[in-house]
């Protein structure tokens, strides 16, 4: 009980700083998300069309995904054009988002029932019409599952970027650790979780708008 009160007291007494960190945190996550969506959805579309690249591209995404984040951040800092700060942080996070996004876009497009595509072709739909009117709309549930994983993951991983100069919630946790201040660590973790939950909730709303009600019952399979 005591701890909970102390945590809230801490948040209350440091609201300005926490607000600043939260805004920074959110803006980094949203920047990364915007670039990742455009980039990785395109890559997913391309490899689903040119299947021969699929295995190697998804393999690359898997390799990137298992590199410890702290080392990737550190590595980018050493590159002069990137240096300390947002560029390095954003780039590293974008690379981490590759795996859940590319893989799920590819999987989503490939998991579309063959007989439905066949029906589309048989009705006289062109390849482009089949992509935009059948494959993409039917892939949304799987794609969104990937997007939501990516969002939560980026939000958590962004905390590590504090080591390369980002002034975000990670800093709270980091300082908490160095000072042995439990309230600070818990407050940081709490805020990060809230940000993740909030973004996930927004994505959920978006998913509901984008995904056809005809698919919603089956989206639970993924």
């Amino acid at each position: 009980m005591e701890v909970i009160r102390d945590v809230f007291l801490f948040i209350f007494n440091n609201s300005n700083r926490i607000l600043e960190y939260t805004v920074n945190h959110l803006s980094l996550v949203l920047t990364v998300l915007a670039f990742s969506l455009v980039l990785w959805i395109s890559v997913g579309l391309i490899i689903s069309k040119y299947d021969r690249f699929a295995t190697s591209v998804i393999g690359l995404a898997n390799i990137l995904f298992v590199i410890p984040s702290i080392s990737l951040f550190g590595l980018f800092v050493t590159i002069p054009q990137l240096g300390l700060g947002r560029k390095s942080a954003a780039l590293a996070l974008i690379l981490y988002a590759m795996m859940p996004l590319v893989r799920n876009v590819y999987r989503g497009l490939k998991s579309v029932d063959k007989s439905v595509i066949d029906a589309g072709r048989g009705m006289g739909m062109s390849t482009t019409q089949i992509l935009y009117q059948i494959q993409i709309p039917m892939a949304w549930p799987v794609v969104f599952a990937g997007i939501r994983v990516a969002v939560v993951m980026i939000t958590g991983m962004a905390t590590v970027a504090t080591f390369i100069g980002e002034r975000n919630i990670g800093r709270l946790i980091h300082h908490g650790i160095t000072r042995g201040n439990a309230e600070m660590i818990i407050a940081g973790a709490l805020v990060v979780s809230l940000i993740a939950l909030f973004l996930d909730y927004l994505m959920g709303l978006l998913e509901k708008r984008v995904t056809s009600p005809g698919l919603r019952h089956s989206s639970e399979n993924y």
Binding site: V116, D118, A119, G120, G122, M123, G214
Partner: peptide, 21 residues
């Protein structure tokens, strides 16, 4: 594509578009 639009096709697996009404 034009040929197929002139020929009605009922496929064996029905193949309705699940995301369309």
């Amino acid at each position: 594509d034009e040929l197929r639009r002139r020929i009605g096709y009922v496929i064996q697996q029905v193949g309705l578009l699940p995301h369309r009404t």
